[in-house]
Amino acid sequence: MSQHHDVNDEQIQKHTSIYNEYINDPATQAELARIDTVDVINYDGIHIKTVLAYISILLLCFAQLTNIVGAGAVSDPESWADKDLF
């Protein structure tokens, strides 16, 4: 997978060890809501790539709601039928 190409073994080991430590320690289970950011899986520091990824997520949110509203409130099958569109 192309996602893997810029990840070295050290990073993988670090994330895996954090995860294993976390899931195997019952004490940390109770702290799920308060887990530190640096321990969150996939968090890799805030930089321009992170901001761009976030903006692309916002764009998808925008597109999804445009679609939902289009299928619901905007679409009026009765008027489509009245205008003999199909």
């Binding site: 996602q3 990840v7 899986i41 890799d44 790539k49 692309s56 764009l59 998808l60």
Partner: peptide
């Protein structure tokens, strides 16, 4: 809407490159 979806998919494929999750690897 089709254009917005296409643009979203394209930007995500280019800009979103997360570190693999532990279970993933």
């Amino acid at each position: 809407v089709a254009g917005l979806m296409a643009l979203s998919s394209l930007t995500l494929s280019i800009l979103f490159n997360p570190v693999p999750r532990p279970l993933q690897i």
